[in-house]
Design a protein around this nucleic acid. Structure first.
Lengths: 201, 201, 201, 201
DNA sequence: TATGAATGAGCCTTCATTCAT
DNA sequence: CATGAATGAAGGCTCATTCAT
């Protein structure tokens, strides 16, 4: 990419980033269309290629950007000494919601990365994804799982939480417009119930 | 579509259905490529359009077919008097697995329908999906949820099961080749844990 | 390339070959435009790519075709026992003119190959060019140069003939339409004079 | 063009002229890329269009410049009373080599003009080329051709010299870097032989 | 019925040209 | 004067769809 991209007015940078992120998130790498981004960002087609060598370069950049941004926010506003599992899950999701303020499609985009199946795209972006997963894993490191009842298999439990949250997120994004309040409500209700269920009562 | 499709040799019909279903399931409507189906089914490109006016028509047909087939099997081999929630979930999944014998991609295809975001495709297929959801809902009608602990919100619980099962299914299909044993194992472990968690201990 | 190209009606094959050859000959690889070929051959853009994977594949094919054709004609109608240098030069040029009947741009195209400076194109086609040069060199093998005066350096002489013939050919092709009679006339006059000059008088 | 171009520092003017000339000479009008000139001359893209309305304008200017410069040098350092044909040819070529000191691509650029086949470019530049050809023709005016043997047709002979020299020049420019010594050597050898051949021995 | 040749709209990318700074 | 950001038309290529055989 052309580093001068960062010299653009922040507002234009963000329009471009958001446009690309939205189209990538909704269509995946291969099907994402430059024309759609053009419309979305209100910026000419040629300009994308002035700053990003090609589609894969743009995809790489956007992925890098989203992940760096999330990880930064995670480091900044997620308290590393959270030991409760559900607080951790919730806290991370709050971070995503805060990122949404500037980059509305980051949460969905991150989620879409896990379904990307285009080889070229994966090759370019695999590293970044792993980095992100590691950072998230780190946030779970000091979590104390001793509160879980003995019949709870951690791995299965985590998978349940992961898949369900992904499902809720995607359902909310599928609506006309993402409703943060609704999302947080469903999330909280879900986590509350999972907490109850995972503990000896 | 052209009804004469059903005059074709059953084996050819199925090759075409499976080819289309696979490509649609793995790529979604918009990204699914005619050429890939041609290769997959070993049937000329012209024939597809001879029987199905266009891509949307084919998508509609395949959706209709998959859903009709599943619902038939459900009616045939799913005992309607199952009252246990988890037995119901498991039973339905067994039906899907049995359909897999003839139509290997039906389970993934059905799952993929929920993430379809192409407007045209959704417009054409929405009705069918709703019909399918209704049929499945019906299977849950006589389920007795009194065994659930009081802190379990049914809707949230069902959503958890639905999303997690979807996640597991997709992960298994993402493997080199779908491993039914592995899938059933994960499924059972998951359901076992959910049962435990949902009951007063 | 797709071998089925050869199943097309010969007339269509030739229209495509001639169209491509003309545009390549006049513009070089990089600047040759698919659209122009489309117009030239009266065949849709998609069809080119149905038979040839990409531009370089088409270029390779056309080069191969032109060279194979010329070499065939050379083998068929050029008498291998010509020992006179000028008869050899003239004979080869007659072969080119005979090829022109079916493929009007072969002579210019072959000439253009030597000025190609696109790396990718050269990499794809270098082998063929060398093969062609070898075949032509072979035709000169049994030429008897003893008639040349002692002050004639063969290498310089041959270079003179080569460059001048190339120049004449290109000048003739630059005209509205290639005039074979005019070309042969200039050629003969040139060779006659070179013969005279190269011999002790 | 914008006459203020000449108010630029001479060194910058020359960088631009040389950059344009090189790229035009190596690629022809149509294939010459603005970006390449930008890199070659180290001058911003906008500036080219500030002084030269468009590509054609730049091409016209460069052609005019090269031809004016050559003709000036010809007038200045080519002795008009040379009567020997070969001395004339050689003298003109020496002039080109002297121009190369300031404008390394002038010789190749002038040569490339003869193969330009872009209509628009030719229309814009035809006049200049004719002017140049006239000036060169003038240098041959007082040449004494009586030394030529009777069997030498002047026109054919001149064409031979012209095309061969063009060929040699282009071959030398195709090398990594133009080697003036090598060029002059080949040239002299060629002319020496042509002299011998054209005279009664 | 069945094929695959043929088409053209649309996609990613390049490039001459314009324009705000 | 000078820059390079910005544009959009055009180029190579893909893909759903049509059609002659």
């Amino acid at each position: 990419m052309n580093e001068k991209f960062f010299d653009l007015k922040k507002e234009k940078q963000d329009r471009m980033i958001n446009g690309a992120m939205k189209v990538f998130a909704l269509n995946g790498f291969a099907r994402a269309s430059t024309d759609e981004m053009v419309k979305e960002a209100g910026v000419s087609k040629g300009l994308w290629f002035h700053y990003f060598d090609n589609k894969i370069g743009l995809y790489t950049f956007v992925t890098d950007y989203a992940i760096k941004y999330i990880c930064m926010e995670l480091a900044a506003s997620f308290s590393a000494d959270t030991t409760d599992y559900f607080d951790t899950v919730y806290g991370i999701e709050m971070v995503k919601m805060s990122v949404r303020k500037s980059y509305p499609y980051v949460p969905l985009f991150l989620s879409s990365l896990d379904q990307e199946n285009n080889e070229e795209a994966l090759a370019a972006v695999g590293e970044y994804i792993r980095y992100y997963h590691d950072k998230v894993a780190a946030a779970y490191e000091q979590v104390d799982k001793s509160a879980f009842a003995s019949f709870v298999d951690e791995e299965i439990f985590e998978q349940t939480v992961r898949f369900t949250m992904k499902g809720i997120l995607e359902e909310e994004y599928a609506k006309e417009s993402f409703d943060e309040a609704s999302y947080m409500e469903r999330l909280k209700a879900f986590l509350r119930q999972m907490r109850k269920m995972s503990q000896n009562n």
